[in-house]
Design a protein around this nucleic acid. Structure first.
Lengths: 207, 207
DNA sequence: ACGCTTACCTACCACTTGGTAGGTAAGTCA
DNA sequence: TGACTTACCTACCAAGTGGTAGGTAAGCGT
């Protein structure tokens, strides 16, 4: 029961924080700079988020939910297991490309695996990876593989997707906008061929 | 002609700076904290590197040289082009795993494509990527592909390698040390199969 | 012996950082 | 109407930031 309309200030702060954390990292973004462009003082921010770390944690939580929500999407189609894996990762690729700041910040969190904010960034990974492992294991050729073998496989795909999404700005600076856009258009096909060929190869022999 | 022995202070500072920049990012590492563990004051650092950004640039330059030196290694063996590509990326994978801080900082630089220190981090990428493109194009099935097609392919491998190297600490926290070590041992084989299968698929048709 | 350079040091500076204390205006509910 | 909550604000603070100014002790070349 708010007594004074907030005009979604909390959400505005979260959005601005996401952008600045993604762009400059946790230390590079100050709570003053986060709210400056909103025309507020930092005390407005501290009113909604008692510390900078709490704010950071909330931003990460929002990102995790966004990624988790990816799975709630088209999943009813009960077609081929391999096609499901493909669809899952192509969707992930699109999501990462469309949500640059979220992807960037997530990768940053991977880099900064410091003990901060209760390792907020990592807990979500478990269910995220669990889903992937299950989907891959639904493919006949991989049914008997160990979780770690599947994870080793999936990690090559995750890396390919994440890395591609992250480096487009830098590569654009090197090669120019047109060339990189051409690359991004070819990328999903490349990714699909990559996934299919490594899936088709089947699991390596057990030890 | 140094008049007083420096005991390699400059190199010690560079090494400490590398570790701290990798761990906490440019803003998170202060010049005071970088030299604190060396028992020096920040003025010692400023004596060798007039500004923090110059120091950062020097650290990045060292990293680039390390990656560039990878190519100077075993390259005389004039065997199969595909094997050369494999060997190149397996060596890169080993190097990234063995040089965690360098890899981390490089990826950070990809994230922070800010206009800082004259974009020190990106200039090196051109020759690095050029070498890769040439090596892939030496493979018959890819001889007539465009540079961008090759780059799209190589980027999936780079992403797989880099991402894997970066995320081992975080994954270790989630799954435990033993499991992740098992994963890392399986990774080169996984990587090789990945590269071989995508190389064998050949270049997509030209538009 | 002397001047010069190197390799640091102490002292200091303006500014920014995250955070506290305490206020005020507006709306909600009894 | 009056108690209470929400949504901010100004004022302030200790600690830390990158960087400057100016020193000092040691070694080298002449």
């Amino acid at each position: 029961m708010p007594s004074k309309p907030s005009n979604g200030t909390r959400e505005q702060i979260l959005e601005s924080a996401l952008l600045q954390f993604a762009e400059r990292g946790f230390y590079g973004a100050s709570i003053a700079s986060i709210v400056k462009e909103l025309g507020l003082t930092k005390q407005a921010l501290l009113h909604y988020f008692p510390t900078k770390e709490k704010l950071y944690g909330e931003v990460l939580r929002g990102i995790s939910e966004g990624f988790a929500g990816l799975d709630q999407g088209a999943q009813k189609t009960a077609d081929d297991a391999e096609d499901q894996v493909i669809r899952h990762f192509l969707a992930l690729n699109r999501y990462c490309l469309a949500n640059g700041p979220q992807t960037t910040l997530l990768l940053r969190e991977l880099l900064d695996n410091r003990p901060r904010a209760g390792n907020v960034g990592t807990w979500y990974l478990t269910e995220f990876l669990r889903t992937i492992i299950d989907k891959v294991k639904a493919v006949p050729a991989w049914r008997n593989a160990s979780d770690m073998q599947v994870l080793a496989l999936a990690y090559t795909w995750l890396g390919a997707i994440n890395y591609h999404a992250i480096s487009t700005p830098t590569l654009t600076g090197i090669f120019g906008k047109d060339e990189i856009e051409a690359l991004s258009q070819k990328y999903p096909a490349q990714l699909e061929r990559l996934i299919r060929s490594s899936l088709a190869a089947g699991a390596p022999e057990q030890l």
